[in-house]
Amino acid sequence: MKFLRAFLSTLAGMPKVAVGAVAIFLFLGIFAPWLTPHDPNAQDLLQANQDMSISHWLGTDHLGRDTLSRLIAAARTSVVGMSLVLILALSVGVTIGTIAGYRRGWVEEGLMRIVDVGLAMPSLIVALAVIGIFGTGYWNMILALALAWWPGSARISRAVAVNVMNRPHIESLRVLGASPLRIYFKHLLPTTLGAVLVYATADAGAVALAIATLSFLGLGIQPPTPEWGQMLVDALPYLEASPRQVILPGLALTAVVIGFNLLGEAVALNRVPTPLSAKILRKRQLTAALWTREAA
C-alpha cells in the first residue's frame, strides 16, 4: 500500500502526456486479447482496403484484417518483446555491474573491459550481426537485442553499486562484520536494482523502436504476427491508396517512443526542483495569512 502510494505520487510529478501514452501502451499490451474487436489475423479479402466504418473503426488492410485490432495486438507484441529484452539485459547487466562494483580491483577491471567492448558497438549493429549468424526468428531477435543492451545496464549498475558500496551505511555493515552475501543480497542488490530500473525507463522506448526496426527489415517479428514495423512494411505498397495504414502504426510507435523518452528524462531530472505551481502557492499563502503577527 505504502509502495503504491509512493509510486502514484511519483507519477503525479511526471509529464501527463508521457504518462498517458505509456499507460495506454501498457494497458493495451497487457489486455489486448480482450480488447480487440476482431481477430487481428482473420483475413477477409472481400473487405480489403476498406475505409473507416462502424464495424471496422479504423478500416481494414490489404488482406481485409481489422486495423484497430491489429494495432492493439501489435502493442502486445511490443510490450512482451520489450519486457523480455529488458529482463534479460538487466539480469545480465545488473549481475555483472554489481559484482564489479562489489569486488573492485582486477575483477572489476576485467568485467568492465568486456562491457567497454560491448558499448563500443552500436546496439542495432550487434543485433543485426547476431541475427545474421543465427538466422531470423522471434527468440533470436530477443536474444540479439538483449545481447546488444546488457553492456549499458552493466555500466550503470557498476556506477550505482560503487556509489552504494561507499555509502557509510554499507561501510557500517562491513564494520559490524556482516557476511559478503548479506551485504550483496540484502543491501547492494536491492538498492542498485531500484536505481537501475529507473534508468531502464529511458531504454524501453529505444528497445521498442529496435524491435519495430528489425521487423520492418524482415529480421524480427515474422508475419502474420501483428507488429507495428511489420504493419508499416505491409502497407507501404498501398501508400497512395490508403495512407492511413502507414500513418497509424507510425503514429503509435512514435507516441510510445516519445512517451518513454519523456518519462526517462523526467525520472532523471526528478531531483531537480521546479517552481511551485500557482495552486500550491495560493494554498501556502493562505496558511501563512492565518498566522498571527503580534505588534512590535
Binding site: 501556502r284 499563502q285 496558511t287 501563512a288 503580534e294
Partner: peptide, 21 residues
C-alpha cells in the same frame, strides 16, 4: 525592521524568520 520571511515549499509553509530587527 520587523523582518518576517515566510517560505512556501511543495510540502508546507514555514516561517524561518520571525520579526527580526
Amino acid at each position: 525592521r520587523d523582518l518576517c520571511i515566510d517560505l512556501f515549499t511543495a510540502r508546507s509553509a514555514l516561517r524561518p524568520v520571525d520579526q527580526v530587527s
